[in-house]
Amino acid sequence: MNVEQLLFALFALLTCAGAISVVICQNVVRMAFSLIVCLASVSALFFLLSADFVGATQLMVYVGGTVVLLIFGVMLTSSSTLLQIRTSPAEGFLAAGIGVLFLAVFSFTAWSVDWDANSDRIARVTAVDVPPQGYNEASSGNTVRPLAMAFVGLRPDKGGNAAGYLLPFEIISVHLLVVLIGAAYLARTKRRVSADTQNK
């Protein structure tokens, strides 16, 4: 067992433990903490898969942004501290059973596909000249420049003749702006209305 496998096993275990304890915990802030552990371990897995920019974005946007937002939500909506809303045990058992079945289906599917043959077929169909083991050699994880190129519509990593992502990138920028304004508006006006009604 080499270092890479050891680290992978460690973070895989942390990811699964975090995800499962998000489901099991009843206290919302405990859930948020488990979510932090889970998402941070996923970002470590991204680094192990030599996707360093995605891993960094995961840390910055997900763990440092989205989860903070969620905890804020918890604090603004909990009427008492250390809030708990319980689900009934019967529902829990039912959900666990369905979950195990789901997991079995997924694992069975993943293990019964011959990925190498599929990979060859994709390479044949797209007729793009790429190295057979994907973009990343194990020794390089520096994906910032190629990713930035892909976002402005250039694909030097695929010999320049593949599709770039300029239009989706622009759309998502506008989308973010719309969401920013919309979320601020949604969260703000309603509260002012309720404050007014209380004053009356």
Partner: peptide, 10 residues
């Protein structure tokens, strides 16, 4: 994972 292990690339 697919971008790492298959020929889909980036």
């Amino acid at each position: 994972a697919f971008s790492r292990y298959t020929s889909l690339g980036l």
